[in-house]
């Protein structure tokens, strides 16, 4: 983990990517934001380059490879050091996530807000989690 490393954003929703980027700008986070459309894209990135990102922010529901699958693949292939900040950001209900995964503590879980204010708040918490 590097404070100056890139923020890896995995989300297929353009609007959400836009909102998150806007929120990060407003929060004066100057780290590079690398965006991937789904889990497999992100996995390839990690496989090719032993990057040292600041934080991974991932959606749960995505085409090709969803968020949980990405987390599993990264953990299995040891592409993420343990305790690395991995954040799920989703509109989905918590109940959609298997209970045992929730209690493993491998990641943090934030819901995308219903207002820009909420999103700002969420992003500042995510950055805190990264630091």
């Amino acid at each position: 983990m590097a404070v100056n490393g890139p923020i890896i954003l995995v989300d297929d929703d353009e609007d959400d990517v836009f909102l998150i980027k806007t929120a990060l700008e407003e929060l004066s986070i100057s780290n590079e934001v690398r965006v991937f459309r789904h889990g497999l894209d992100a996995l390839h990135y990690f496989q090719q380059l032993p990057a040292n990102p600041f934080v991974v922010i991932s959606d749960l529901n995505m085409p090709v490879m969803n968020g949980l699958e990405l987390l599993d693949a990264l953990t299995q292939q040891k592409l993420l050091p343990s305790g690395f900040p991995f954040v799920f950001l989703t509109t989905s209900d918590v109940s959609a996530i298997p209970k045992q995964v929730l209690t493993e503590g491998r990641f943090s879980f934030f819901t995308k807000g219903y207002s820009y204010e909420q999103i700002l708040e969420t992003m500042s918490m995510v950055i805190e989690r990264g630091r």
Binding site: D13, D15, L19, N61, T91, S92, K112, G113, Y114, S115, Y116, E117, I119
Partner: peptide, 20 residues
Amino acid sequence: SHDLQEPARKMIVFSEMMLG
């Protein structure tokens, strides 16, 4: 529901941003 919720959520967020 999930897919319907997303656009509605965006409308809320963007109209709010617009107003703000």
